[in-house]
C-alpha cells in the first residue's frame, strides 16, 4: 500500500466545500427573498368593505359604559351578508374573465409571473370567501346557503344594469341644453335669412345644408363619401 497524502486532498475538498456552500447560501437566500416577495404581493382586490361591515355587525362590542351590546336586528345582519355575497359575485366575475387572458398573457411573456401569483392567491381567497359566506348563511337561516348566491347574482346584475342606466340618464341634462342652444341658433339663423332679402339666400344655403348634415346624427356624414364613391364605381 502506498502512503496517502491526506493534505493534498484538502484543496479539492475545500473547493467542493466552497462551491456547494455558495450554492446552498444562494438558494436559501433566493428562496427567502422570494417568500418575502410573495408574502408582500399586493392583493388583487381592494379591502372587502362589505365583509368588514358584516363582521363588525356580528361582533359588535358593547360601547363603553353600557352593560350589553346593542342587539343587531337579524334582518340587518342578513342584509349585510347579502351585500357581502353581491360583492363576491362582482369579484368572481372579474376573476373568471381575467383568468383565461392572464394565462395566455403569461405564456406569451406579456405580463409577469408575480401577477399570476397574485391572481392565484386571489382565486384561492375567493374560494374560501364563498365557502365562508355559504356557512354564514346556513347559520343565519337553514338552507339559505344554497340560494344566497342566486339572489346575490340577480342583485349584482341589476346593480350593474342600473349603473349603466344612470350613466346614460346623467347625460340628459347636458344633451338637453345642447339641443336647446342648437335650436336657438338654427332659429335665429332662419330668422336672419327670412329678414334678409331673397337674393342673399343662395350664399346661405350651403351653410344651412352643412348644419343640417350635422344634426342628422352620425349616419349622414359617413354615408356621403361612400355614396359618392359608389357612383364613381358605377360610371
Amino acid at each position: 500500500m502506498f502512503e496517502f497524502d491526506w493534505y493534498s486532498l484538502l484543496l479539492p475538498l475545500a473547493y467542493v466545500g466552497v462551491l456547494f456552500g455558495s450554492l446552498v447560501t444562494f438558494s436559501s437566500l433566493y428562496r427567502k427573498r422570494k417568500a418575502i416577495a410573495s408574502a408582500t404581493l399586493a392583493p388583487w382586490f381592494p379591502p372587502h368593505l362589505q365583509r368588514n361591515i358584516y363582521l363588525s355587525l356580528l361582533h359588535l362590542d358593547p360601547a363603553e359604559g353600557d352593560e350589553k351590546a346593542v342587539a343587531v336586528p337579524q334582518s340587518v345582519v342578513r342584509a349585510a351578508l347579502l351585500r357581502r355575497a353581491t360583492e363576491d359575485i362582482h369579484r368572481i366575475i372579474q376573476i373568471r374573465t381575467a383568468k383565461q387572458a392572464c394565462a395566455t398573457l403569461l405564456q406569451r411573456g406579456s405580463v409577469g409571473d408575480d401577477l399570476w401569483q397574485r391572481f392565484l392567491r386571489a382565486e384561492k381567497e375567493m374560494e374560501d370567501e364563498l365557502r365562508d359566506v355559504v356557512m354564514e348563511a346556513n347559520a343565519l337561516s337553514p338552507n339559505w346557503g344554497q340560494t344566497i348566491f342566486q339572489s346575490a347574482n340577480e342583485i349584482a346584475a341589476n346593480t350593474m344594469l342600473r349603473d349603466r342606466l344612470d350613466e346614460i340618464q346623467a347625460q340628459t341634462e347636458s344633451e338637453k341644453q345642447w339641443w336647446e342652444k342648437r335650436r336657438a341658433s338654427i332659429q335665429s339663423e332662419f330668422m336672419k335669412e327670412l329678414d334678409s332679402s331673397a337674393a342673399s339666400s343662395p350664399t346661405k344655403i350651403p351653410q344651412k345644408a352643412g348644419s343640417e348634415d350635422d344634426t342628422i346624427l352620425v349616419e349622414s356624414p359617413t354615408s356621403t363619401p361612400s355614396s359618392t364613391r359608389k357612383r364613381k364605381g358605377k360610371k
Binding site: 398573457l105 409577469g112 401577477l115
Partner: peptide, 15 residues
C-alpha cells in the same frame, strides 16, 4: 415584457 415595457407596468395595465 414581450411588448418591451417594464413587467411592472404590464402588470399594472392588466389590473
Amino acid at each position: 415584457s414581450k411588448e418591451k415595457v417594464l413587467i411592472e407596468s404590464a402588470n399594472n395595465l392588466f389590473k
